[in-house]
């Protein structure tokens, strides 16, 4: 019928963005990083940014491997230091479109301070966090975003620590664009990334992402389908919702949408340029 395995003349539509010789990648079956990267890859084409201007900076963790799989300029930084590297890159080469795609462990535990201070300074970056509620690559330890009551390798009786609501954190620290989607709301995610790429300032998008192997298996969601079904059934799209009311709790709806859009806030680069014009050399 109409199934066909790959003919050599035909290619996957995003094949030029991938380092094909390194495929198949190391992410597990059903991982949410792949769809997130797919949405991110499609967004620059949508708004007309050429591939040469796009830079992908990643931290440590499952997401960190992405910079090695994509055929764009990128850097695989040390743990938690994706944002500082990206700030330096953006200040030195302001014409580039710099994105940081990293995991929740990287951005919010060891890189937590870098995140809030980049928000506060309003550095011109797009930060995408694939939040899978756990440290996936190292074997399922407790992360700052693990939900209350969830089991992890280091919390065998259930997590007793409240988790971060990362959009609320970004909003409170002063990000100009804050959104949350899941790795099955991909059309909306792509649109949201495209919108964020056209803005100036610190833009933050959280992508809830399944980790069936290290999160799902310990929390009664062992198949990729189970987590996808949880996202599909319990998500409610509420654009412009108050970020203080959108924390994720078990048994309650997951609230998704574009929450914050601020305009008119000067970026760090603009402030520094203005300072450069004002200060006279002695």
């Amino acid at each position: 019928m109409n199934t066909q395995t790959t003919a050599e003349s035909e290619q996957h539509p995003i094949e030029k963005w991938l380092r094909s010789e390194r495929m198949p990648h190391m992410w597990c079956a059903g991982c949410g990083v792949g769809p997130t990267l797919y949405a991110w890859i499609r967004a620059p084409d949508r708004v007309g940014i050429p591939r040469e201007k796009v830079v992908y900076v990643s931290g440590i963790g499952c997401c960190g491997r992405g910079s090695g799989y994509l055929n764009v300029d990128g850097f695989h930084t040390t743990h938690g230091r994706a944002i500082p590297f990206a700030i330096g890159l953006k200040l030195a080469r302001p014409e580039l479109c710099v994105s940081v795609i990293s995991g929740d462990g990287d951005l919010f535990s060891i890189g937590g301070n870098h995140f809030i201070h980049a928000c506060r300074r309003n550095v011109d970056l797009l930060v995408i966090c694939t939040n899978n509620f756990i440290y996936g690559m190292t074997g399922g330890q407790l992360a700052p975003t693990t939900l209350l009551g969830d089991r992890a390798t280091t919390a065998p009786y259930g997590n007793v620590e409240p988790s971060f609501s990362t959009p609320h954190l970004a909003d409170a620290a002063g990000a100009v664009y804050v959104a949350r989607w899941t790795s099955i709301h991909l059309r909306r995610l792509e649109k949201s990334i495209a919108e964020a790429l056209q803005m100036k300032g610190f833009r933050y998008i959280e992508v809830l992402s399944p980790c069936p192997v290290n999160y799902g298996r310990r929390n009664k969601l062992p198949e990729p389908d189970d987590i996808a079904e949880w996202f599909r059934q319990s998500s409610v799209i509420r654009n412009g919702a108050n970020t203080s009311e959108i924390s994720i709790e078990k048994g309650k709806p997951l609230i998704l949408g574009d929450f914050v859009k601020r305009t008119g806030k000067p970026t760090f680069y603009e402030v520094m340029k203005e300072l450069e014009g004002r200060v006279k050399p002695r």
């Binding site: 539509p13 495929m23 079956a29 769809p35 797919y38 949405a39 099955i184």
Partner: peptide, 10 residues
């Protein structure tokens, strides 16, 4: 195509 984590179908 978009939901495939492995870029294996289009």
């Amino acid at each position: 195509e978009v939901v495939c984590p492995d870029f294996a179908i289009w």
